[in-house]
Simulated assay, not measured.
Amino acid sequence: MAVLDSQAVLPRSYLFVPGSRPERFAKALNSGADAVIIDLEDAVSESEKNSARLGLYDWMNEKTKVFVRINARGTPWYEDDIAVLGQHPGLAGLVIPKACSPGELESIANRCGEYVALLPIIESAAGYDAIHDVAQATSVQRLLFGTIDFQLDLGTQLTEKELNTFRCQFALASRVAGIASPVDGVTTVLDDPAMLEEAARQSRRFGFGAKLCVHPRQIAPVHAGFTASASECDWARRVLQAAEASGGEATVVDGEMIDVPVILRARSILYSQEQHVGVFA
């Protein structure tokens, strides 16, 4: 697992950009997304895989770091993706598709070095079955939930709410491994901000800290969903004020007994809010 900087503010949004569309790279970086993933896998045709990789290598620089989704193990492009890009100074991390093998992740970590974060995508039954081992592999920073491919592999057609059964395991595995909160999958809807915000808010309720995006229009509502609401912040302030005023004695806010877990939750809400303000503006 990766050693996290306790002061680091992790992304709430990861925007995918096709690796074969270099004219979109700068636009993606200026889109307001917290992080950008240049996609060499699903978004690039087989005939363009090699040219996209080399073009990306030439474009990347150490001042503007991006994540790269490489091609899956077993494909003709996997080894070259790691060899060419794995130690590039402009690489923030590698997104590993079809992740299910801790050994694969250990091998990538050894080849790329300790400063390259690994973000394995759990998008198969095998990956989900190995989720705890995957989460504890060297250099893994966060788990990603590939909800669309996951359902394809399982042969299911579940609603977002029905997927929550699986989401719980992502939060649990991440906590046990001591890594950052997981990243939820793509919502394909582009033109319903309220729906996107609620999807992100639901992800947050299930312990996720970010979401994958496929279009810049999704970023603002996703950020809103991962940001504590005004009412949540107001509640947290009142809890902390009441706890301080009580001098350690039992007290009540909104009919709820205030004990240590409630106080810690209130502190977490305000801390998260303070960290994101001015960092991901």
Rank of each mutant, 00 (worst) to 15 (best):
A2P: 01
D5L: 10
A8V: 11
A8E: 08
S13Y: 05
S13M: 04
Y14V: 09
Y14P: 03
S20W: 01
R24T: 14
R24F: 14
K27D: 14
K27L: 15
L29Y: 06
S31W: 11
A33H: 09
A35C: 14
V36E: 07
V36I: 15
I37W: 02
D39A: 15
D42I: 14
A43I: 14
E48T: 13
N50C: 09
S51F: 05
S51E: 13
A52F: 01
D58G: 06
N61I: 06
E62W: 05
K63Q: 13
V66I: 14
N71I: 08
A72S: 10
D80N: 04
D81Y: 00
A83D: 00
V84H: 00
V84K: 02
G86M: 01
G86R: 02
H88S: 08
G90D: 04
V95H: 04
P97I: 11
K98I: 04
C100Q: 04
S101M: 03
S101D: 09
L105V: 04
L105H: 03
C112A: 09
G113I: 05
L118T: 03
L119M: 12
I121T: 13
I121E: 00
D133S: 15
D133M: 11
D133C: 06
Q136W: 02
Q136D: 10
A137V: 11
V140R: 04
V140D: 02
L143F: 10
L144Q: 03
F145N: 07
G146S: 13
L154C: 15
L154I: 12
T156N: 05
Q157D: 12
T159F: 07
E160R: 15
E160S: 12
E162L: 11
N164M: 12
F166I: 12
Q169Y: 06
A171D: 10
L172M: 14
S174I: 04
S174G: 14
V176R: 13
V176F: 06
A180L: 03
A180I: 01
P182T: 11
V183R: 03
V183M: 03
V186A: 11
V186Q: 05
T188F: 11
T188R: 11
V189N: 08
D191G: 10
D191E: 13
D192V: 13
M195S: 10
M195F: 14
M195I: 11
L196Y: 01
E197R: 14
E197F: 02
E198T: 12
A199Y: 07
A200I: 12
R201V: 06
Q202E: 11
Q202A: 15
R205D: 12
R205W: 08
R205A: 13
F206Y: 13
G209D: 04
G209A: 11
C213R: 02
P216E: 09
P216W: 08
V222Y: 00
V222T: 15
H223I: 09
A224E: 02
F226P: 08
F226H: 05
T227S: 15
S231G: 05
S231C: 09
D234K: 11
W235C: 10
A236D: 03
R238D: 09
V239K: 03
L240R: 13
A243N: 07
A245V: 08
A245G: 13
S246L: 05
G247W: 02
A250I: 12
T251I: 14
T251L: 08
D254W: 00
G255N: 07
D259L: 06
L264A: 07
S272Q: 07
H276R: 12
V277E: 02
G278Q: 02
V279L: 03
F280P: 01
